[in-house]
């Protein structure tokens, strides 16, 4: 009897402690995700209840015919590469600067982090004004050609516009993570390297970079997944334009499903997107983890 009571109370505890988390997780994440496997094989339009089996025709159409999706993928890949490289380079450099005993480093840290607390959607609107009116005004004032470009008007400048805003937004966050890693570097190693006469470049390459490798793992993972999934900034800064040249995969999926009402096709795209994002980020984590050193 007592044994049974104990088992009952244990079951109740399991339900009370884990139940709510599991319920919401299943309802919001797991079930919709599993459903998308089914819907990707249908011609569901999201409105009618009639869902017709379409086999692999959605996937065939995406891979062979949908040039917009291919362009969106190509744009997202190039954008991700540029944003990840530049954001991490800027974030790492800022961290190197701000771990020096500068007098204003607390203020500087605040300033560099500031863009990150603003919603991506609002950032895009802010920068659309800067690119259209602000840069033009600076260009008139200084006469520098860089500011007179039609920033959101051509495919290549709009691409770099997206990259500039993303770097401005992400660099501060990465800086915080890199600073935390640099503060945790064992002092003895740094001192020993100094005594051994390591120059600045040698110090950076052979001591600092290997020691903050775990931070690289985290920062690359974060920037990769943020950039791959870019939506808000894309929508508010360029709306995918000019002529669809800066349309991200996320925006393409959104339009396919909720503007063209092709939910079946949209889910098929979103599954391909999932496979690519999951593969790339997993490979990156495995690769950089392997480079981490034990101290």
């Amino acid at each position: 009897m007592q044994h049974r009571m104990k088992r009952l109370s244990d079951a109740v505890q399991q339900l009370v402690f884990v139940g709510p988390a599991l319920l919401f997780f299943c309802l919001i994440v797991l079930v919709p995700f599993l459903m998308s496997f089914y819907y990707s094989l249908t011609d569901w339009n999201g409105v009618t209840t009639r869902v017709v089996w379409a086999g692999l025709s959605n996937f065939k159409r995406i891979l062979l015919e949908d040039s917009e999706f291919r362009n969106a993928f190509w744009f997202t890949a190039r954008y991700t590469l540029a944003a990840v490289v530049f954001a991490n380079a800027v974030g790492f450099t800022l961290a190197l600067l701000l771990t020096q005993p500068l007098k204003t480093r607390n203020v500087l840290r605040t300033v560099f982090f500031l863009p990150n607390v603003i919603a991506g959607l609002l950032l895009g609107f802010i920068w659309s004004f800067i690119f259209v009116k602000g840069f033009a005004a600076i260009g008139e004032w200084t006469g520098i050609g860089f500011f007179k470009l039609p920033w959101l008007g051509t495919a290549s400048t709009a691409f770099w516009g997206m990259v500039i805003v993303s770097v401005w937004q992400m660099a501060g966050y990465l800086m915080v993570i890199y600073i935390a890693a640099m503060m945790n570097m064992p002092r003895e190693l740094i001192e020993a390297a100094k005594i051994d006469g390591a120059g600045r470049w040698k110090m950076l390459r052979s001591i600092i970079v290997p020691l903050v490798m775990p931070a690289f793992t985290v920062c690359l993972f974060l920037t990769l997944s943020w950039s791959f999934k870019v939506f808000d900034l894309n929508l508010s800064l360029t709306k995918g334009g000019p002529f669809g040249s800066t349309e991200s995969v996320a925006l393409n999926i959104y339009k396919e499903a909720f503007q063209n009402n092709r939910y079946g096709l949209g889910t098929a795209k979103s599954l391909i997107f999932f496979v690519v994002v999951a593969t790339v980020t997993t490979l990156q984590v495995i690769y950089t983890k392997r480079k981490e050193v034990e101290v």
């Binding site: 919709p32 999934k229 979103s270």
Partner: peptide, 16 residues
């Protein structure tokens, strides 16, 4: 589940 991008869930989520 953390590697699943939001966009890969959102369409059926609207239905659910």
């Amino acid at each position: 589940a953390m590697v699943i991008p939001f966009q890969s869930i959102m369409i059926p989520l609207v239905k659910v």
